[in-house]
Design a binder for these strands. Structure first.
Lengths: 232, 232
DNA sequence: TCAAAAGTGTTAACCATACACCCATGC
DNA sequence: GCATGGGTGTATGGTTAACACTTTTGA
């Protein structure tokens, strides 16, 4: 450990990144939290995150912290908002660039099983109070998710690669917190021609098995280039 | 000048704010720029901005810098995006939180006349190349403005308090870069019941004077609480 | 045979679009 | 009287919303 220090003519704020990682499982929207070991807020749950290195872009910092702290595999990552209130960290002036991420929980079974640290998925609607201003960050992330899911096909990033139409409908109903008409929903989403019907149906369900579909990203990009706008 | 310095156990990035200030005049969208006096990029035009003070929130920093450097009166201000590429400033690691602002150019005649510094409004479509990554920041701001203007009534913040329907139509046509049908546009915007018809018409125009309207912010907030969504 | 969810069409109301002419005013 | 932009209505096609029953499967 060297005693080397870094000095500047003017005081400088600390710079961190924080991530709101969403997953969808068992008909619920979940968020990934970490339990803090040290003060301030020792024992409290918080968003994963940490300091940005000097030679590292912001997004790279989020990816590194998430890999180190949680090991999740991200399906989608986007900058959310930068939080810079003077007293948001009681010890020091810290500015945090928040990101939000979507993961396919079907991918991450590993996680819950193997991780030794205090990392856990919480239903968004039954979560503990968070450290720092992380409750506010989460609120902003939820608002963004709600707004964005209707105009960009990011909902698929929360589902397994193969899914039924009912699954995606439930996902939309959960995120938008509103019931949707089954027939209208199906007609509309199929009409976009973004889903590929598979020769496969659900297994091990105690009722008629639903046909499975996958999202055709290629097709989406092609349609987008031609001026198509996703909207649900 | 004291030789006092500030030292930390780890190196810290510098933190700045930059602002993309939009105005609308003579049928054109304009942006407010400042000519740099010092290296790097001495003589180049750049977005107004500067360092965030330690005891100052991010938005307060933007407002202070804009007041100091340009004196404009803001009608709207919103955080845009945070730019943190490692090499975006050639001298040091600097992370910049960018904001975008709208001003009523009708308010700011003062500005162009009294300001002694190298501050000027440029048409967005005929602007000089900018310093640092400011061209990119401006591109992002334009994209955001285009996207937002359709779903939130922020276009009015670029117009004088009293305006004609044609003026707002031209504003939308300019920002969205697409022609709109006069009759359909009028019907739609009047149907929202957000504009108050005034007992006043244009003066000193070489043709039939248009009726003037004002935007009813009260009404907008009331309708919003009841679930109304602005959309054009 | 029951429970649970999958799957499927039609109608009516509403909304968006396309489109052209007369009017008021100042020069 | 002419040039300039202001102001106005209708018809058509497309989109959305409301709505209920039959089918398949496993337990």
């Amino acid at each position: 450990m060297s005693a080397k220090r870094f000095s500047y003519a003017h005081p400088r704020a600390g710079l961190t990144v924080d991530a709101v990682v969403f997953g969808f499982d068992a008909g619920e929207l979940k968020v990934l939290l970490i339990q803090r070991e040290n003060p301030p807020f020792a024992g409290r749950w918080a968003l994963p995150g940490g300091y940005v290195h000097m030679d590292e872009a912001l997004e790279a910092a989020v990816r590194r912290e998430l890999a180190e702290e949680t090991g999740v595999r991200l399906a989608y990552l986007e900058q959310l908002y930068t939080f810079g209130a003077v007293k948001r960290d009681p010890r020091d002036r810290i500015v945090s660039v928040a990101y939000y991420a979507l993961v396919k929980l079907s991918d991450q079974r590993i996680q819950a099983a193997t991780d030794a640290r205090d990392v856990a998925w919480f239903p968004v609607s039954h979560r503990p109070p968070l450290a720092f201003d992380h409750d506010e960050i989460l609120r902003v992330a939820l608002t963004r998710l709600k707004g964005k899911v209707r105009y960009q096909p990011i909902g698929f990033e929360l589902l397994p690669p193969k899914f039924s139409l009912s699954e995606i409908q439930h996902l939309y109903e959960t995120i938008l917190a509103t019931p949707l008409d089954k027939r209208n929903f199906r007609r509309k989403i199929l009409a976009m021609d973004l889903l590929r019907e598979l020769d496969e149906v659900q297994r091990d369900v105690a009722h008629r098995a639903a046909r499975l579909y996958r999202f055709d990203k290629q097709r989406y990009h092609e349609l987008t280039r031609r001026g198509f706008n996703f909207e649900l």
